[in-house]
Write a protein that binds this DNA or RNA. Structure first.
Lengths: 192, 192
DNA sequence: ATTTTTGAACTGACCAGTCAGAATAAGAAA
DNA sequence: TTTCTTATTCTGACTGGTCAGTTCAAAAAT
């Protein structure tokens, strides 16, 4: 099936280059398919992009949900959720940018709205997990869950980036441990 | 002086669109200057871009340094440094992306290297501040200062973004307070 | 007189999207 | 099984548009 090959190639190319620098020609070449086949299977670039994003978000949400439903202690759960996110972000370098930042000009309003909705849904999903933890577990209740969700994604994204360009200095494990500490404890300043 | 007008316009256009979608025609129009003048003052797009990034980084470093040299308590200092960063990021929506992410294809290797060096310099600058705090103040020593610097920038960037699309729900002050809490204390989980 | 600016015209590259026709699969008839 | 027919899937050259970068003669500013 060409459709699958195209989606896989699109994930790669979009992840490597972001939306605007990804070209349909390269996606076609990577999928070993003629350009026309892209347009036979998808109405256009933005629709193809939407499909890719949707798949990525659904995937990470599913993985996260599975971890959270496991009968593990909270600490373990958080570690695993962080690990899943790092997996995704390291796999698809620019996936998070694409979803969280690059959604803008050059995409039809209709598709743009769908993408924003996907993003919103995902952040709410994370926020609801945090809120739950604030009620039932030992999460600090002083922080806003929505902002916290955004912040966590930002932290994971930027530390991934840093890690990718300094792999000599850090191991994958360092990255995971750091992310856990930073997210749960921050810089841990005891002021006054 | 046209040069200044061009730089200002370039900051705007690059910040709004990122590097690749920013067009020299629009920069010229925004600066109310002929396109030829751009090329009279700068060798090309990438050089102009470099100038803009350089100015932005030098600006925020200078502001941060000034705050840190003030005779204020540590807590106050950190709050101010965060505020400065939020100012910059909110002012130039995509400035941080540009610097931290969008540096890639389509730019000559030489300029690319200079940009990466600027970015590195800035992160080291932040890291050195954190390290100093870990020695002399009450910052947790368990976190790696470089990763922490990257993480902080990521947090600020993504929360800014979230704030910008939810200004109805949050005030600028909420944003500042949240960023401070998240950076210094994280989700503050007391596990077990 | 020298420097700076203008604005328009042009080139070459890139790229999203199109389309007429080729290839392939699927099913019906012989 | 083999042949004919139709529908689906795929192809790749082509189009039209955008944009960076160049050039330059003439005008304006210093």
């Amino acid at each position: 099936m060409s459709k699958d090959k195209i989606i896989q190639a699109a994930i790669e190319v979009f992840s490597e280059n972001g939306y605007h620098r990804a070209s349909m020609d390269e996606i076609a070449a990577r999928a070993q398919v003629a350009k026309g086949t892209l347009y036979y299977n998808f109405p256009g670039k933005s629709q193809l992009f939407k499909t890719v994003v949707k798949q990525g978000i659904e995937d990470i949400m599913q993985r996260t949900e599975a971890e959270l439903n496991s009968p593990l202690p909270m600490k373990e759960k958080i570690e695993r959720v962080i690990r899943d996110h790092l997996d995704l972000f390291l796999e698809s370098r620019h996936f998070s940018h694409i979803v969280f930042n690059e959604i803008s000009n050059g995409i039809e309003q209709e598709v743009l709205d769908e993408l924003k909705e996907l993003k919103r849904k995902y952040l709410s999903f994370l926020a609801s997990i945090i809120e739950e933890g604030q009620c039932e577990e030992n999460l600090c209740r002083a922080v806003d869950a929505n902002l916290a969700a955004a912040s966590i994604v930002g932290t994971l994204e930027s530390t991934c980036n840093y890690y990718l360009s300094h792999q000599d200095a850090y191991s994958r494990d360092d990255l995971e441990q750091f992310a856990f500490t930073m997210i749960t404890q921050g810089l841990f300043i005891s002021l006054e």
